[in-house]
Each structure stands twice: as C-alpha cells, then as structure tokens.
C-alpha cells in the first residue's frame, strides 16, 4: 500500500468523522457564539472596538483554540479510546500516514467551518470597517492556520500522553490568556494567539481603531511575516513530532469498560 494513498483514504474518512457526534455539535455551538455576538451588537462606528474584542479576538482567542484542542486530541484519541486503532495499525500503511491522515481530515473538515464562521463574524461590520478582499481572506486564512497549529500541537501531545486535554485547557485558557496581558517577551511569543494577533495587526496596518485594540503587549519590531514563520515552524515541528511519536511509541488500547 502506497502510504500517500493510505493517507488520502484516511483523510477522506476523517473528514466525514469530524462532522459526526456530539463534539461536532459542541464545536458548531462554540463558533456560533461569536457570530451571534457580531450580529447582535449594533454595527456602529462606536461599537467597532467591542466588535473587535468580542467577535474577532474572541473568535481567535477562544473558539479557534478550543476547536484546535478538541479535534487535535481526537486525532489519535478517537481511535485509541474507541479501540479501533488496531484496525489502522494492522494495515500496510505507516503509522505516520495514519496520524497525518486523521489530522488532515479533521483540519480540512473543520477548517472550512472556521473560514465560513470567520466570514460571518465580519459580515455585520463590513460597511463600517470596509474590509478589503485581502483583509477578509487574510482573517479567514489566519483563523484556519491558527486552528491547524493548535490542532497539530495537541495531536502531538495526545500521541505523547493520555491527559493532553487537560494540558491543552491549561495552555489555552490559563497560559495564553495570561501572556496576552503581559508586555512583549519571549514568553508571549510562545503563545499562538500572540502571533495570530500580530498577523491580524499586519492585515489592518494603518487602520487606527484596529491598531489601538491590538497593539498592546507587542514588541515594536514584530512583523506579521515573522509570526507567519513562527506559526509555520510550530506547525511543522508539531506534525513531525506527532508522526515520530506515533511511529515509535506503543499506543496501548485502553481496556474495555464492562
């Protein structure tokens, strides 16, 4: 079996799987909240700041990482906890292809949802902000990219140990939240959200209302290109590490619950 062919098959199956079950419903609800907030806030110039913090930043700081965590830990978690991993690991497909196939399936499946949700968030404010196509596409791509990075990080963590979900919650809702309020430092640069905000700042350069909201806590020399590079490196390293772990480590199937 060609590993690439196996990867494509597993990806296609994972896309279908990502939209099934309670998790998919919960994620759709989480993405619905910032959209709802955007539509319920009166779209006036005075509300732009609120729109930014509630919809755009809320979306980037909560909904996207939450989805990345939920689906990232599910990449191996679903197969391990469902004890179906045995079927995958007794096929002539490398374990790295299984890991990557599951990962890309989830990311492609929900990536589309995230892009659409991001677009819907901006819709009520389109007239006030007058988004350019580049800005809109940039916002959508940044959200999907951030989701892909979070998912890769947490997929690798789940491959490494069982309690990745708790670590993920701590990372997103404690660590990233704290460092987002701190002045620029090496620590803030470890936060994915920090880089997302830098990229969004880059998208809206020259638009003063965005800058005021976004520029707190950033070093003057930070550029969106640097953040894109940082996220790309994090993405590649996380996927490579996850693939390596899955290929090298035993993946014990939990015992059945009687």
């Amino acid at each position: 079996m060609n590993n690439l062919r196996g990867l494509v098959l597993i990806t296609a199956q994972s896309i279908r799987q990502s939209f099934r079950g309670k998790r998919a419903l919960a994620l759709l609800f989480v993405f619905g909240l910032p959209i709802l907030a955007a539509f319920l806030t009166p779209p006036t110039r005075a509300n732009l700041s609120g729109f930014l913090s509630v919809s755009l930043l809320g979306f980037a700081q909560f909904a996207v990482p939450f989805a990345g965590l939920a689906l990232g830990v599910a990449v191996m978690g679903d197969e391990l906890e469902g004890r179906t991993i045995t079927y995958m690991f007794t096929r002539p497909v490398s374990r790295a292809a299984v890991f990557l196939g599951k990962y890309f399936g989830f990311v492609l499946g929900f990536g589309v949802v995230i892009a659409v949700a991001m677009y819907l968030c901006t819709m009520p404010y389109d007239k006030q902000v007058d988004f350019t196509k580049t800005q809109l596409l940039g916002l959508m791509a940044t959200s999907v990219g951030a989701f892909a990075v979070y998912a890769a990080m947490f997929a690798a963590l789940r491959a490494l140990f069982t309690r990745a979900l708790y670590v993920g919650f701590f990372w997103i809702f404690v660590f990233e939240l704290i460092v987002s309020k701190m002045p620029a430092s090496g620590l803030t640069k470890m936060s994915v959200w920090h880089h997302v905000a830098v990229i969004e700042m880059g998208l809206f350069e020259g638009r003063s209302f965005f800058m005021q909201e976004l520029q707190r806590g950033f070093a003057r020399d930070e550029t969106w290109q640097g953040s894109v590079l940082s996220l790309t490196v994090a993405f590649v390293v996380a996927l490579a590490f996850g693939s390596w772990i899955v290929s090298r480590r035993e993946m014990p199937v939990p015992a059945a619950v009687a």
């Binding site: 099934r20 079950g21 004890r83 179906t84």
Partner: peptide, 20 residues
C-alpha cells in the same frame, strides 16, 4: 515494517468499531 500487513488479516478481541 507495516508493509508486512499486506498479507495479514487481524481480528482483534475488543468489540470496537466505527459505529456510524
């Protein structure tokens, strides 16, 4: 060497499926 599984059929003990 996962390629060896080309010629292997495996029935696991656990009652596990893609239920959907």
């Amino acid at each position: 060497r996962p390629h060896v599984f080309r010629d292997v059929g495996y029935l696991p003990e656990q009652d596990a499926f893609y239920e959907d």
